[in-house]
Design a protein around this nucleic acid. Structure first.
Lengths: 163, 163
DNA sequence: CGTCCTAACTTGAAGCATCAAGTTAGGCCC
DNA sequence: GGGCCTAACTTGATGCTTCAAGTTAGGACG
């Protein structure tokens, strides 16, 4: 129970530790901050917003559930529950795909589209305030690169696309 | 409803957008990955682990609830519920502070201490694999700096200390 | 053409987080 | 020393996430 996979466990150096503390705080606080902004300004959570946003960028405002799940880094189960809720709010609608297998699309309704359009400006502004405009272009670039690198480590072989 | 706080909402440039997509994926996936590792190796969530870890670094393995909440970026309510659960598992114990006000300490039990000690190596290894060792020292340094900067924007005036 | 198989989704229960209301223990002020 | 105030928690309800188990629609194999 005290040896989970290695005899030698190199602890963090003071520099590494300091960096890690900042990163840990970041990945806790940034999602909270974005959730809070969207919740209070538009009555919607960050994840729900991402789902609507992803759909709004599709030509037919339509995407298969498993593709949405991949785009938002969520489990299919989570997504299914979420789509059920969004459906109840009239923002989205389900649609069976006729072909082979048991595939289902989610389609953004007009009301759903209006919701994202209404929510986006304040959301983007907050993202700018907290992240984009807080950093130099070089820092932002590094952050993007570094994020992609870590993501690649988490699940090797994936692209990314959400908002 | 279409104008949440500004007439001119500068959208993201393609570079900014690409960076933001990486960052968004990062703040969703990294917590999930850490949670999954801790859950499967030690049967404990990331947040619970942080609470125990913070306590384990105190001289008397004791800290006031509101200080733990601050150190882990959580609400007092969330922390109180969590401490109740940890208490039920025998990992922590509550202790009223006699002085003024209605202050309460959480104290790490021996069992709780054993738990963190057992969980830490695999957790640290995962943090190394995913983040620390995936980046150059310069990138890590930048990431730390940048994290601190964003945190400062989120709630101005705070230090950080957790694991 | 029937059985097995897989991929994609659904569902229900259990756990965890959040929000809004309480509660509690002293200070403060007259 | 009685009423009021604040800070620090606690609690219960509600909602979201996860987990494990189920369901469904074809395809492949024999």
């Amino acid at each position: 129970m005290a040896n989970d996979g290695s005899d030698t466990t190199p602890w963090l150096t003071p520099q590494e530790r300091r960096a890690w503390l900042s990163i840990a705080a970041l990945i806790v606080k940034l999602p909270n901050a974005l959730d809070a902004q969207l919740q209070s300004d538009s009555g919607i959570g960050f994840f729900d917003y991402m789902v609507l946003a992803v759909l709004s960028e599709e030509p037919r405002r339509t995407l298969q559930l498993s593709d949405i799940a991949a785009a938002t880094s969520a489990s299919l189960s989570r997504l299914s529950h979420t789509v059920t809720r969004l459906e109840r709010q009239g923002l989205v609608r389900r649609e069976r795909i006729p072909g082979p297998g048991r595939r289902t699309n989610a389609v953004l309704t007009d009301e759903g589209y209006a919701k994202v359009v209404a929510a986006a400006p304040a959301h983007v502004r907050r993202v700018r305030d907290l992240v984009i405009d807080a950093l130099t272009p070089t820092q932002l670039r590094t952050l993007g690169t570094v994020g992609a690198r870590v993501i690649e480590r988490i699940d090797p072989g994936r692209s990314c696309s959400d908002d």
